[in-house]
Simulated scan of single mutants.
Amino acid sequence: MAVDIERALALTLPTFTVDVERGRLRLFARVIGETDPIYTDVEAARAAGHPDLPVPPTFFFSLILEAPSPFGYFDELDIDLRRVLHGEQAFEYVAMAYAGDTVEISERVVDVTVKRGGGLEFVTKETEFRRGTELLAKATNVAVVRNPEVTA
């Protein structure tokens, strides 16, 4: 079934908040192989001029998974997850985030591109991360949806 582009662009996704915790930042840093102590040691972070442990690059993606239903927008658009592939991910960093911050996360579908005669549809979702009114970062995720009804 083809993605309903108008419905996708009009879809309202719930905004939610996540508290950034030190333990979670330390674990994430270890998992990605980050060895700079500013990401695991509060004193090292403060000595480097940070108020607390800074958020490592790409950590924001893990916060997206805290949504009440992180992949629920596929259900809302009648997209079968068995037909979805991760296509692309990009981040734009605007300001530093730290342990102790409460981050507000808002998401929306910003584009649907159809290729291969409708056989592939690219659903682009943009996510904003804010501390209060301050924009911290934006993430762009592209999901590739295979339309089984198109065989060409």
Rank of each mutant, 00 (worst) to 15 (best):
D75R: 15
S69Y: 03
F74Q: 14
L120H: 11
G49R: 09
V42D: 09
M96N: 10
A48H: 08
R131G: 07
Y39R: 02
G33V: 01
S69W: 02
N141I: 12
A99Q: 09
G87T: 07
V123L: 15
V20Y: 00
G87F: 07
V109H: 04
T133S: 15
K125R: 15
V42R: 13
D75F: 15
V31K: 04
A67R: 03
N141K: 09
F129Q: 03
L9E: 12
P148A: 11
L81F: 11
T40C: 08
E134N: 12
G132F: 15
P68F: 12
R30P: 01
L120P: 10
F60Y: 15
Y98S: 08
E6Q: 13
I105M: 07
R46L: 04
E134P: 04
V150Q: 10
Y39S: 09
F60I: 01
L136M: 14
K115Q: 13
E6V: 01
Y93S: 06
V109L: 08
S62I: 15
V84Y: 01
L63K: 00
V142C: 09
E149K: 06
L13D: 05
E128W: 14
D101A: 08
V94C: 07
G117E: 03
T124W: 05
T151F: 00
Y98W: 06
T124E: 12
P56Q: 01
A137M: 11
L77I: 02
V123P: 07
A2C: 03
T35Q: 14
T17R: 14
T127N: 09
A95W: 05
G118H: 07
V142S: 09
F91V: 01
V145C: 10
P14M: 01
V42E: 14
A99E: 08
V112G: 07
A143Y: 11
F71Q: 06
L120S: 07
L77G: 03
R108W: 12
Y98L: 05
E104C: 10
F71D: 06
P56I: 00
V84M: 03
E21P: 04
H86S: 08
D75E: 15
Y93L: 11
R7N: 05
A44H: 03
G23W: 15
T113A: 14
G49H: 10
P148G: 12
L120N: 04
A29S: 11
L13E: 14
R130Q: 12
